[in-house]
């Protein structure tokens, strides 16, 4: 099994080594968390409103037993979510506007969009 503490210290080490590039503010406060669920290859909610110009932590829960890939060309995001798992995807800061996303594995049904508003 993975030694979680050890990994955390790795992460801290990496934060230190590339410290000038990382956002130190979010380590302390943390960006707002938005939850999206995947069920029957659909996103719930399919439209997510977020504040513009702010970093957001998307918590995507896959309630289906099959894997899905969260993908968005406008957000430049791509991530596989195994069946019955959850992942975190950081997005933003985004300019106001609509950012569609979809499930790469079931793009006919799994469609949604993020709306960044001032």
């Amino acid at each position: 099994m993975i030694n979680y503490m050890k990994i955390l210290s790795w992460k801290n080490f990496l934060y230190l080594s590339i410290g000038f590039l990382t956002y130190s503010s979010n380590v302390i406060a943390g960006p707002p968390i938005i939850e999206i669920e995947i069920k029957d290859h659909l996103f719930f909610p399919s439209t997510v409103e977020i504040p513009a110009n702010k970093k957001i932590k998307l918590l995507v829960k896959n309630l289906d037993p099959t894997p899905e890939e969260f993908e968005s060309y406008d957000l430049n995001r791509e991530k596989v979510i195994a069946g019955n798992r959850k992942v975190i995807i950081f997005i933003g800061p985004l300019a106001p506007g609509e950012y569609p996303f979809f499930g790469e594995f079931y793009p006919k049904t799994a469609q949604g969009k993020i709306v960044a508003i001032e």
Partner: peptide, 22 residues
């Protein structure tokens, strides 16, 4: 970037109207 291990930097250009990644 996606893992928030690196600072996110502004988008340089948008050529999706010329050639969509889709």
């Amino acid at each position: 970037n996606q893992a928030d291990w690196l600072i996110s930097t502004p988008v340089l250009w948008d050529s999706s109207h010329l050639l969509s990644e889709h």
